Computed example of a mutant assay.
Amino acid sequence: MRFLSAPNRQFWVSLGGALSLSMVACTSNGASSSPAAPQLAGTQWEVQSIGGQAVSGGKVPTLAFSASMDIGGHGGCNEYSGQVSLKGTALTVGPVMATKMSCGPVQDRLESAFLSALRNAKQVKVKDGLLELTGASEAPTVVFRQVKP
């Protein structure tokens, strides 16, 4: 087996580096390959289903996004607030704080399920007036319908 001499090796390493850089420059047009982030600032939503189960009757959980991507709403019993960030459709939910009033077993279970799904959301999708939050699995965890302010 024959090894390249130092000058030849330097030439091929330099050429390989230059080709790599030119390939990156040709394929990168400044656009991200991830899907565009949905425009959520200033929108308000009402829960339709959690974990595939329809939500109706009583106080239905809500979700509102401020211009600075603070979130807040009614969890089914208590008011809550927090922050989110979006990168494409990837969602990061920061700490969510809620008041601690009890509203009875049914509303307390609804709120617990909603806040748990919200805290564990990883992806967001908006289509046909619906907002879907998904967790680790790809099935929608929470589905909302848009509410006009």
Rank of each mutant, 00 (worst) to 15 (best):
N78C: 02
P105G: 15
G52H: 08
T141Q: 13
L131Y: 02
Q53H: 10
P149L: 09
A6W: 12
M1Q: 02
G57I: 02
S32Q: 07
V143C: 05
G76L: 02
V84Y: 03
Q44P: 02
C77W: 14
A121Q: 10
Q83Y: 02
F3V: 06
S34K: 10
L115K: 11
A36T: 13
H74C: 04
T89M: 10
S22H: 01
A90R: 12
L40K: 05
S56K: 10
M23A: 15
D128F: 00
G57Y: 04
A25G: 11
Q44C: 10
C26N: 10
Q123K: 10
A6F: 15
K148W: 00
Q48A: 11
P7S: 04
P140Y: 02
G58W: 01
D128L: 03
S34T: 15
V96E: 06
V106M: 13
A18C: 11
V147F: 00
G42Q: 06
L91E: 04
A113F: 04
G104L: 11
T62P: 04
A37H: 01
M23K: 05
R145D: 08
Q83I: 05
L115A: 09
G72N: 12
V147K: 15
G52L: 12
T62S: 12
V106H: 06
A121N: 08
M1E: 02
R9F: 15
H74G: 04
S85A: 15
